[in-house]
Amino acid sequence: MPHAALAHPPRWLTASQLHPAPTAAVRDWLFNEDSLTRRLTALSANGFSVTPLQEGWQRLRNDECSALGVASGSQGWVREVYLRGHGQPWVFARSVAARSVLEGSGLALEQLGSRSLGELLFSDRAFDRGELQVCRYPALWLPADARSERLWARRSCFSRGPLGVLVAEVFLPTFWQHAGIDP
């Protein structure tokens, strides 16, 4: 799908910029800095799994280039997965890293398979996590089987030296239902 299909990309906002603020339960999931993988594993009573949807080199979106501090139109590694609880897709995750710094960094994103990128980033103390930002994620950016308007998403950049890995996580309706939260 062409990137130009979205006339108005979302505005990613920090907790202090978000007005009106969502409920405390929603904020807890959007702005909690612990590993989402660990939280989903606990919520699912160890029924957590990762399903890769697509990964490979492609042109990064402008908002991703800006967040990573690379030129607009840069190439990067893009990995899209579902984070599942009890087999249901709970979260759509899109992780990107600019080719210019990923190659030669020693981080082998292409070898993750069905392992969680979050676990890798949280287990490597060399990575620093940037501030969490949230938005209402554009439906056009979601996989066809998960398209829904105004879903809450969050993102943050994990940095190790010049390498930045931007991780965006979109909370799907099945997640909120299981968690018993009205988003």
Rank of each mutant, 00 (worst) to 15 (best):
A21D: 00
A21E: 01
A24G: 03
A25F: 00
A25Q: 08
D28G: 13
L30N: 00
F31G: 00
F31A: 01
N32H: 14
N32P: 03
N32S: 15
D34C: 07
L36I: 12
T37Q: 10
R38H: 13
R38K: 15
R39L: 12
R39E: 04
T41K: 12
L43F: 14
S44K: 12
N46P: 11
N46Y: 11
G47E: 10
S49F: 11
V50G: 05
T51K: 08
L53W: 08
L53H: 06
Q54K: 08
E55N: 09
G56F: 03
Q58K: 15
L60P: 00
N62W: 07
D63M: 02
C65F: 04
C65K: 01
S66K: 14
S66H: 12
L68T: 01
G69E: 01
A71D: 00
A71G: 07
G73L: 09
G73V: 05
G73T: 03
W77C: 04
W77T: 01
V78I: 09
E80V: 06
V81C: 11
Y82V: 07
Y82H: 14
Y82R: 08
L83A: 02
L83F: 09
R84A: 10
R84V: 02
G85Y: 02
P89V: 06
W90M: 02
V91L: 01
F92P: 03
F92C: 12
S95H: 09
V96Y: 04
V96F: 03
V96Q: 00
V96W: 02
A97R: 07
A98G: 09
R99D: 10
S100L: 10
V101N: 14
L102M: 07
L102N: 03
E103L: 11
G104M: 03
S105L: 11
G106E: 05
E110D: 14
E110P: 05
L112H: 13
G113R: 12
S116H: 11
L117P: 12
G118E: 03
L120W: 02
L121P: 03
F122M: 08
S123F: 04
S123I: 11
R125V: 09
D128C: 13
G130I: 05
L132P: 05
L132F: 05
L132V: 12
R136P: 00
Y137P: 00
Y137K: 03
Y137T: 02
L140V: 15
W141Y: 02
P143R: 09
A144V: 10
A144L: 13
A144N: 06
D145C: 10
D145K: 09
D145P: 11
A146P: 14
A146D: 12
S148M: 14
S148E: 15
E149C: 07
R150P: 03
L151Q: 13
W152Y: 02
W152A: 01
R154V: 15
R154D: 02
G161D: 05
P162W: 14
L163A: 07
